[in-house]
Design a protein around this nucleic acid. Structure first.
Lengths: 97, 97
DNA sequence: GTGATGTTTGCGTGATTGCGCAAGTAATGA
DNA sequence: TCATTACTTGCGCAATCACGCAAACATCAC
């Protein structure tokens, strides 16, 4: 099953994904993750925001199903859930002209 | 020129597009417009919201560059700015799984 | 155990968003 | 001109969001 169902639910899920993509810092995170997995600390340094804030952004991306996490010791690594995520980003850029 | 362009500006524009797509009612509007142009009144009836509210949603879509408008007499018709917009919607649905 | 590092959670604030409603503008026809 | 239809704009409210900061939690080395 591709997922459930009514047109309305389908739109709602798509809107949730769009909302997760609707922030420049989160897009910046996705660019980094397109190169491979990264820890919260690395992402927070690269993107230029505080760690707690980054953790929040990652939670948004994760609950929209765009990224996955893995713990190794005390460090949590994040990665893209799917290559499609990058396709989505590219199309946004294309539409944005 | 594809548009002007620091990576940060590019992300900001993409985020604006994503924000415009981040609402179920606006996605519903895009589905209607994929079939052809529609007036504000028609859209407001189809989507099920008040006309002023629809006008606001359309303003969001227009300022993100996703739709264009045309006046014919007292009626304003909206249409998709580009087929790419529908591609973007489809990818969102795909990612939303 | 203690301490150090890395991450998450909670709280407060200022900004933005969606909505309903009223008022304003634009074009048409009597 | 006046009325009607069609749309847009302004205002106020409740909800959500991004952020900074502090505190809590988890893991590891010692």
């Amino acid at each position: 099953m591709v997922s459930s169902n009514s047109p309305e639910q389908s739109r709602e899920r798509a809107a949730t994904v769009a909302r997760a993509l609707a922030d420049a810092k989160r897009l910046c995170v996705l660019e980094r993750l397109a190169e491979g997995e990264r820890s919260v600390g690395e992402l927070s340094r690269d993107v230029g925001c505080q760690v707690p804030n980054m953790s929040q952004h990652l939670a948004v991306l994760r609950s929209a199903g765009l990224v996955l996490s893995r713990r190794d010791g005390s460090t949590v690594y994040y990665r893209l859930a799917d290559e499609t995520v990058i396709d989505a980003y590219r199309i946004l850029q294309q539409v944005a002209g």
